[in-house]
Amino acid sequence: MKIHRYIYNLTYCLLIVILMTSCKHDKEHEYHSVTDKIEAESKNYKGIKTSSETFIDGMNLFEVTENEITFLIPTRKDKIKSYKCTECHTQPLAKMQTNDIKKAHWNIKINHADANTMNCVTCHNSDNMNDLKSITGHSIDLNKSYKLCSQCHQKQYKDWTGGAHGKRIESWANPRASMTCVNCHNPHSPGFDTKWPARFNTQKVKERK
């Protein structure tokens, strides 16, 4: 009958309308995934007021640009008490070239790769003891020691420039300030020992029982 048909069509249309509008949308914008949202909303990104300046103020940082990314890292020379190595080592020690290296800085043991791969002169520049040296013998400034580490550890270096390896200093906002390799890893013994965790949840043990 016509009325039946009419009602049937009406119900059908209503159903469709309900189905269409029942799709869960955000109140303000209609995105299906957060990545869509990010893409759309960062098109007009002009920068924000929040900045990291209040937090990094007072620290000795300088700018580096690696992999086309510019960020701040802490200086190193002012944090080493006995820096300017040449204050004591006035002449380049020819001894460093030999295997007989126990006499200098006797309290530093190298625990970095094995003896075949690394010894003191792998990194330290015997001609100018204030600098480090690259694989090809070029001088590397002590503040930019990451250039040395990146020779072998390319992957970590790339991750570090992007921010996936290493830690940021204090703030998530720009300008970005990140730690360098040596702020966490002791270059002479870069690995970390095991330790005990910081917290033990006795309540959970109770609950589990």
Binding site: V34, S42, Y45, I69, G162, G163, W172
Partner: peptide, 13 residues
């Protein structure tokens, strides 16, 4: 970090 900042570390990750 801030996902809307194209230069942030979170975006790079």
């Amino acid at each position: 970090g801030n996902l809307l900042d194209p230069n942030s570390t979170i975006r790079w990750v």
